[in-house]
Amino acid sequence: MFGTTLNKSWLMSLWCMAFALGPGTSGAEGILVVKSQNSPPINQSLEGFRGVWREPVREVDLRGKADSKEVVNSIRDVRPDIVVAFGPQAAEASRGSVGEVPLLFVMVANPAKRGLEGRNIGGISLNIPAIMQFTNYTNVVRNLKKLGVIFDEKKTGDMIKEAKAEAARIGIELIGVSVSSQRAVGDALKTLLEQKIDALWMVPDETVVTPASFQFLQRETSRNKLPLLAAAEIFVEKGALASLSVDYGDMGRQAGEIASQIIKDRKSTEGLKTVSPAKLNLAINLETSRHLGELVNQDAVNSASRTYP
């Protein structure tokens, strides 16, 4: 009888321990959050993430430095099921440290160029697909048929090529003029204007888009009453007609759902891939809109997420 009781107790203890150390914990907190810095966009995104994943997470703040050592130590200590990296520095720092642990990056532009590719790597890119841009811009600019773009073949040639194809799918002719230096931007614009484009599409091309060239572009497009579709909201603030930007909070939510799924699927990274943001914010400059008049769809203006000034 005593031996029977003892056996039962021993089994019960083991069961409790197994339960305590059950799947999903394996002695760790589950998710290790690495953020590039303590900035508002990242915090918004993290807040969105926590809105979905309500379990406690371990946070590491890299304070702007891609210091992998700290990530490594944290991974060793925490042994997470998944590492969620907010921002490019966090993603880069985590990339070489996660090993087999799934890495989910959030708010990273051009992740492929940063080497964020792999079986257990995926996330939400900051890049907004061209088709999404064109689709939204056709709502903003009336009769948008010809869309001009100035680019550097070496830096964004591939992207433009893809974008052309995407634009053609929705009936937009994407006319591009390649430049190799900022000095050629003026002639490129002139060329595009001669081709009677309906709007000028700004892409984040380092050769083309500088503070000085933007000023030129904004001035010339305004003078020619040509809608300027910007690459970032800051340009809308400066006078461009419209821009599309990501919703950081929604990105975080999106990341939370992905992380939850991965953990639910017992760390299976089959579904882990690079995706685009689910939600976009449209910013409109009202002054520019008024200046362009009938060229702008007022409904789009009214539905804009943010307006300037």
Binding site: Q37, G64, K65, A66, P88, Q89, E92, V108, A109, N110, L126, P204, E206, V209, A231, A232, I234
Partner: peptide, 8 residues
């Protein structure tokens, strides 16, 4: 801001 250049 535009190209997410690393702070480094």
């Amino acid at each position: 801001e535009l190209y997410q250049t690393a702070p480094e």
